[in-house]
Design a protein around this nucleic acid. Structure first.
Lengths: 195, 195
DNA sequence: ATTATTAATGAATAACAATTCAAAAATAAG
DNA sequence: CTTATTTTTGAATTGTTATTCATTAATAAT
């Protein structure tokens, strides 16, 4: 019996990240992904059901990772809710620093994937947001975070602000240095802009 | 000589807004748009260069309107920078209330259009953001807004937060009432979440 | 070495949907 | 009423690209 050599599935995923980041999901061609992955076009379909399945798997990996890491942050009893909150923001930025292409796919295609794969997609995404929510609740209980704000709204507020800023950073990295963005986000959310 | 009856261009634009809102730009079919507009598929091409041109015109209309209205807010000397800021947020929410479908297209397809039509698209969009920036600057000068925050970052921060929240409102309007979202956004940006 | 089993290939196919264009319809002018 | 001009139509075309599948290659088992 023959055994698969290498790891074509991984190769294809990585190639897809590169191609999706460059031209966007809709303009990305399977033929190009296969070329970058150094496999035949047909081989893509041995590992993925269809084009959308590739994107789905990419997102699943991201959100599973984010969820897992946020979970360990949350469970750390040595740091305050606000410190946890800061770590959460760092977590998202770390993806960018590690793999800018992955991050580009993350911010640019989230919309599309959420629309077309509603039921299945949401697992780790929802779990991640729920953890974020719990951290905020903890902060309210410990009297560190204002209780005037709706938690469900706050979680999307934060996520949306980050996502859009990262998108602009990707287009114009010089005008929007990542660390400056990160600092500003933390500041605004904590203190607001009123003097 | 024959004269065009009705206003087919407007009919097509409105039909497109409806169809794009329902199924998203990529899955929207010209045939469907034509059907909703009650014209033949071919007629679409008498008024628009291609499918993308329709989306482009929709966005142009939105941003021109936002820009025009923000301009008159900005030039009003009777209200404070913070009141102007509140009005700016109201402005964006008003689109939603007036025409939820238009708003859906606005938040869901902004990405796509910005990618593919870079040079031309940006006119009123940039102008709008620049006006917002000036309002913030005015607030800093009058010592009402903290100067610790980078203005360029702040403008996308606000826009991104609003965009994402509206997207979620669209999916689940009951859990995220528009007025509650609006209030929360204003609060967080002003005061932050620290107690 | 031979056979069996599974992996991989890539040219051919199939499906889809944007766009075109020859013909028809509507209106205006003479 | 006839002709000229412009608009509208929608079936046919075109282009694109995801996906399939018969064939080949690689490895393992005997």
């Amino acid at each position: 019996m023959r055994i698969k050599e290498g790891n074509k599935e991984k190769d294809i995923l990585e190639a897809a990240i590169k191609v999706f980041a460059e031209v966007g999901y809709h303009k990305a061609k399977i033929a190009k992904i296969a070329e970058v992955a150094e496999v035949a076009a047909g081989s893509v379909y041995l590992y993925f059901k269809d084009k959308e399945d590739i994107l789905l798997k990419i997102f699943e990996n991201i959100w599973r990772k984010l969820y897992t890491e946020l979970k360990s942050i949350k469970e750390n009893d040595d740091i305050s809710p606000f410190e946890k909150f800061d770590s959460m923001i760092d977590l998202i930025f770390d993806i960018y620093i590690e793999n800018p292409n992955l991050a580009l796919v993350f911010v640019n295609e989230q919309n599309h994937i959420q629309r077309s794969a509603e039921e299945y997609f949401t697992e780790y995404y929802e779990k991640f947001l729920n953890l974020g929510e719990e951290i905020i609740k903890e902060g309210i209980q410990k009297n560190q975070i204002s209780s005037s704000v709706d938690i469900k709204i706050l979680r999307y507020f934060i996520f949306g602000a980050i996502k859009t800023l990262l998108q602009h950073w990707a287009v114009d990295p010089k005008n929007y240095p990542l660390n400056k963005i990160r600092q500003n986000i933390k500041f605004i959310i904590k203190y607001g802009i009123e003097k």
